[in-house]
Nucleic acid binder design. Sequence first.
DNA 1: TCATAAAATGATAATGATTATCAAAATAGA
DNA 2: TCTATTTTGATAATCATTATCATTTTATGA
Lengths: 148, 148
Amino acid sequence: MILQKKSAFNQFAAARGLRSTRQRDLILDVFLSTHEHLSVEELYLKVKVSAPGIGQATVYRTLKLFAEAGLAREMTLSDGQTRYEHVMAGEHHDHLICSRCATIVEFEDATIERLQNEIAARHGFSIRSHRLELYGLCPACKETVPVP
Amino acid sequence: MILQKKSAFNQFAAARGLRSTRQRDLILDVFLSTHEHLSVEELYLKVKVSAPGIGQATVYRTLKLFAEAGLAREMTLSDGQTRYEHVMAGEHHDHLICSRCATIVEFEDATIERLQNEIAARHGFSIRSHRLELYGLCPACKETVPVP
DNA sequence: TCATAAAATGATAATGATTATCAAAATAGA
DNA sequence: TCTATTTTGATAATCATTATCATTTTATGA
């Protein structure tokens, strides 16, 4: 699977006249090895563990390339910071976000997807993407926070 | 209606030990007089027309107060910039956003709202708010952009 | 009306996330 | 091996936002 993704990225790079560099290779390794929704800073810190010499600007540039290549998806949560998640072939999902501990849980609902398309059509829009985020408290935080 | 909102803000301010200042009054006037989803910069430029002496930091601080008072709602679109819209009593809506001309259209769908609550419950979350944005092309931009 | 305490302001410095710049390094093809 | 071009890393620059602080304004009580 990871080899598949690496290959996909290399094909994308070749098609764009871009180089396959060891930094990009390593950053992709680290990115694919975690299933969290990471900010650039967080990924950079993980990359620094294996390759201290890689610059933060390189990580910024490389993540944008992964997004262009379809391997990563950018998401901007309410805190305004850009995070990245894996793109799994043929899959889309939305997010439940805990306002207290920042836990992110993914979900998918075909009915909502269909309704979104209907609403868009009703307004004469043709939609390409969407963002659905539900903010509240996760099960763990619900236990510890008294209801006001 | 505007008087109502001003009164509501003044009550909020008094309850918080805050002052009612002419700058806040004017900023609220300008904010309520437009129904767009404005960034702080955009609102600041509008405010400057009537009151050149008002500082940008004042507009930043004041908009945050309007949000706390329940008169405005912050929204962060994909561009990462914070925008503000009016809060209408008892109403919630979501947004269709044109990726080309940045037009924002509001909509509301009770079924989606209900499904969101069901999904949250299914994952043990209790949600407080959500964000739903559909990105695509508005009717006008669909006309002018050839389908690839 | 005046005095005063406290909030608010405006200008601007500071912050943090992100991007631009550029000399040097790395890559890939001939 | 050579060379053209891309990429890198360090860091300056940018931009949206917030912090700082001297000064101003507000609201209250006398």
